[in-house]
Design a protein around this nucleic acid. Sequence first.
RNA 1: GCCCCCUUAGCUCAGCGGUAGAGCAACUGAUUUGUAAUCAGUAGGUCGGCGGUUCAAAUCCGUCAGGGGGCUCCA
Length: 641
Amino acid sequence: MVKIRLKWRGEVWETEAEPQECLHTVLERLQLPVGTEILTAKVGKTIHELSAPIDSHSNFELLGWESPEGKYVFWHSSAHILAEAILSFWPKAKLTIGPPIENGFYYDIDFEGNGPTPEDFPKIEKKFLELASQPEYFVRRRVSREEALAYYKDNPYKTELIYELEGEEIFFYESGNFVDLCRGPHLWHSGPIKAVKVLSLAGAYWRGDSQKPQLTRVYATSFPSPALLEEYLHQIEEAARRDHRLLGKQLDLFSFHEEGPGFPFWHPKGMRLLNTLQEWLRAKLLSHGYEEIKTPIILTQRLWEQSGHYENYRENMYFTQIDEEPYAVKPMNCPGSTIVYRTHIRSYRDLPLRLFEFGLVHRHELSGVLTGLFRVRAFTQDDAHIFCTPEQIQDEIASLLNLIEEVYAAFGFKEREIFLSTRPEKYIGSLSLWSQAEEALESALKTVGMSYQVNPGEGAFYGPKIDFVVRDSLRRRWQLGTIQLDFSMPQRFGLTYIGSDGQPHTPVMIHRAILGSFERFIGVLLEHTAGELPLWLAPIQVKVIPISEKLFDYAREVAAALREAAFRVEVDYTNEKLAKKIRLAEQEKVPIIWILGAREAETRSISIRDRRLRQQVQGVPLSEAIQTLKREALPPGLSEN
RNA sequence: GCCCCCUUAGCUCAGCGGUAGAGCAACUGAUUUGUAAUCAGUAGGUCGGCGGUUCAAAUCCGUCAGGGGGCUCCA
């Protein structure tokens, strides 16, 4: 007998088992909810399947739906059932891989040109539930290489996988009439799987390589109850409502047109937002020791040859000709910045020199990847280049980290991750310079006390970098800020400064962006706020609603007072009822609505309807209301004085 | 770029082989309104472009363009 200890939702059981007895039989004996709530088990950090025999292990943590491991196993098994359901309709389809993912699972399948369409989803789901409810038991069987290869003699993908398992054990998992090459782990049986939804179809290259055959990826998700599936579908709907492309249209901020795919058209309200954002950041940077520059959008091809972009980035660049000379549209701002640097002989006393540029860059992105403001072909970077000595790197990075943190906090981004990428295999510059730079970055991060992850070997060939990633409302990760050290460009462009020794030295260049691009940042911000922008950023801050035509004169007066105080105001002069005007203003997501009736006009006051507080205040004196608004509309990080 | 899907009035969408429809918006008029849609009328479309099948195409087929979902979370 083996002594074992089980932990399930905080409670502990101690019992004994026969050697080689399966874990699930022990659980059944204890009348624990195995095959329903208990999905899998863990010993230390390794998953131990319920159907696996207990050997020397003794300490089991039982896991349900609430654990990541439980979901992982649940969806992994679901992928097998999905494949089985699909094979019942497309028996000749060749399976490849079918892993669990963040919110479900997929299976990549080669249908050889005759795959399913979305109309087939219901019948696949029906078949899936039929199979799952039987239920199907997942039985692991070790097979020889020869047997595995023979079984998959018509499936080049599985064959490729088997060849890669040289020297390792090979397993088949059998469930119902379905067999799949799989390393597991799986559920004991399909009983817990009560709801499924086939979500979408997508093309996916075998092994992510566009040179290899394209497979059909079937995305799906499954749950232990129909109610949980419903909840998930509602979440997806809510995320869709927050889609910045939709909000951009509804709020009349920007649009896209076939006359310029991937190039945003900014409407008046979008410009108000974009300009407010830029003015705020500009003021912040100027107060942090930066100077602003602006460099040309079109520069000679020779410059891009010198910078290395022509060699390494040509695919993404647009070219043109001026007076028969070849030119290129800038995909990055850095070469322009170096030209400004070179306009003077620089002394070590001038460093660090911080030059920022809200630079409009153009990049040729593949047509298939364009996505609203998230992925465009022209965008404005909040770019800056800091020229400094190697000794100054650490201090410079530390203050930069604080600045970036300050900026993100202003927009309420709480969830963020920092990645430090270090020297790749292919690199330029001396080893000592690299280690000095990496140490500088790392100790800067430690100085300001920010937690980070290291991505070894992920740095650019010209220097190490720090990336900032925030999560949007769809829980997608977006890299916003980046700090990149560059040893290469200063050399390529022959940049120097005169040191205290009177000799010329090569400065280090720090490329950095905080928001990344204004365009994409606005997209992220819209999804983050569901379009309910903070008062200081809102394109229309106050909507003035006179109750009837008789109040139009007073409305004009109020609006003038607001404009005088530098607010962005709109008056609703339409001949509609109050309820209608309020409805429209609410749909425009205006933060503040001022309502003017006869009572207000008489007392020179206004009534406030506040989107943010979801409450109303009646009869506030006009001058007082404007003073309050002035306080409330201050951009973050600024005090009233 | 590649795979699947979509494209009908300014917007949201219905129609899916027999000669274009709704709601909202716009315009005109009535109404003068107190916290999320007042009523009536008018106007508005080469059904994304091009080509084909058919007596007949928004509807079926092809092609191009634009848009959406994806394209190394590895048995």
